[in-house]
Write a protein that binds this DNA or RNA. Structure first.
Lengths: 236, 236
DNA sequence: ACCTGAACACCGTTCAAGT
DNA sequence: ACCTGAACACCGTTCAAGT
């Protein structure tokens, strides 16, 4: 099986070590994230995967945050924007907007730490622009344009991103459950004298499935965007 | 200057090394955060500050996330809840709610990384409960109780926390500015063929001061909470 | 129960040197 | 311009051993 002439280990394991390219690196990073989670998509671990040293990656990304931003943009390619056009079907604009945002949330749900990084480093890749464009398109159909629409996009995406960061799975389902139980217990155990309203409303504070809450939150946001006074950015 | 009998270095520098206690550790951690930022509030750095080894801290906190949660709760003591009671002044409930949330945002603005950690590990300390209790009190005055109020608290705090995580200062003002410029440039440079709406609305997407946006967002949320159908947690 | 030193298994980033 | 080895300055967490 092994060749007569010994080959360096690294060459044998990765027969055709590909030249480094930006897209190639990102593709490898995405694969690594899928198999081991974003936590493992570190400069060092990724370099190892690419059969090189960590310093090499700094030619393509200024830092780890930029690397993660590139991974995020790649992942955003999975968001379903198929319902953007009014011609796409019988759904009204509100439902189509909800579909797009739900798809976005679901994509990020698998990678909450990516959602967290999106909250810090604002994305601005091509796929992200596609998403923003889609949201603006649907909002325009709902009669929203200009400042109101621009700010609405921001608020809607912030909500969706934060929700994925908060509730996303893959954060060791055990931990999440444990934490939730602890919170529930804390609320239920609130003392009548100091936190009477919490004590009374403990169940309502933790009620509802994530889906029910999400549906409600999107209703809140859209109703609010439609009824709040139009923003005036020039004033700020 | 130096005593005749040599004293171990550590004892000389911290004359009365205090015994470790939960509150004492948190107080030291808060001080460390104020002087060097949350990034430096690591188990190792904190242990060094306390003149001990990192392993000792695991008696008090199961992990770094718990430590940061304790720091956050301490910091929440600074949130101004003085306007909670209707008797506090002439302000209507909406304005009082906005005051409380703005105070919360401002407290977290100085420590965006703490806000980020709050988004992941749900807080449940005493000060956090005080904040929730205050919000429930003001919402009740606006006629909101039960499920609607409970879910509203969640959504309002999520918005506030995410906003602080996103826009908080202290994240190297330079970096933030640079990132913002890059985003603006990206939006302005959107290609007419692929992202026409972004190209048209670029200025509206980035317009407005943080304060103007915050005011608008709170309007949106409150209007939405008041007009969206009451949630039904039992259904979810 | 509380505290510790030492170890294990990692990190990001920079820099001088190579091609 | 791109790539690299090596180094610097850190991390979180566990464990066996002490008090």
């Amino acid at each position: 099986m092994s060749p007569a002439t010994p080959t360096p280990r690294s060459r044998r394991e990765r027969p055709a070590k590909p030249a480094l390219t930006g897209p190639g690196i990102v593709a490898t990073a995405v694969g690594l994230m899928r198999s081991e989670g974003l936590e493992r998509v570190t400069m060092r671990r990724l370099a190892q995967e690419l059969d090189t040293g960590p310093a090499s990656l700094y030619v393509y990304f200024r830092n780890t945050a930029e690397l993660h931003a590139a991974v995020l943009d790649e992942l955003l390619g999975e968001v379903d924007l198929g319902v953007t056009a009014a011609a796409a079907g019988p759904l009204g604009w509100r439902d189509r907007l909800a579909r797009i945002l739900s798809s976005y949330i679901e994509v990020l749900y698998e990678h909450p730490s990516l959602a967290r990084s999106a909250l810090v480093t604002r994305p601005r890749g091509e796929r992200y622009l596609d998403l923003v464009e889609a949201l603006l398109t649907v909002l325009a159909e709902g009669g929203m344009e200009g400042e109101r629409a621009g700010w609405a996009v921001d608020l809607l995406l912030q909500y969706a991103t934060a929700t994925a960061a908060e509730h996303g799975t893959r954060r060791q389902a055990d931990d999440t459950q444990e934490e939730w139980d602890a919170l529930t217990e804390t609320l239920r155990g609130a003392r009548q004298d100091r936190h009477p309203r919490i004590a009374a409303a403990a169940d309502q504070l933790v009620s509802g499935s994530p889906e029910a809450r999400r549906t409600w939150a999107l209703d809140v946001l859209l109703n609010g965007i439609l009824t709040a006074p139009a923003p005036d950015g020039a004033r700020g």
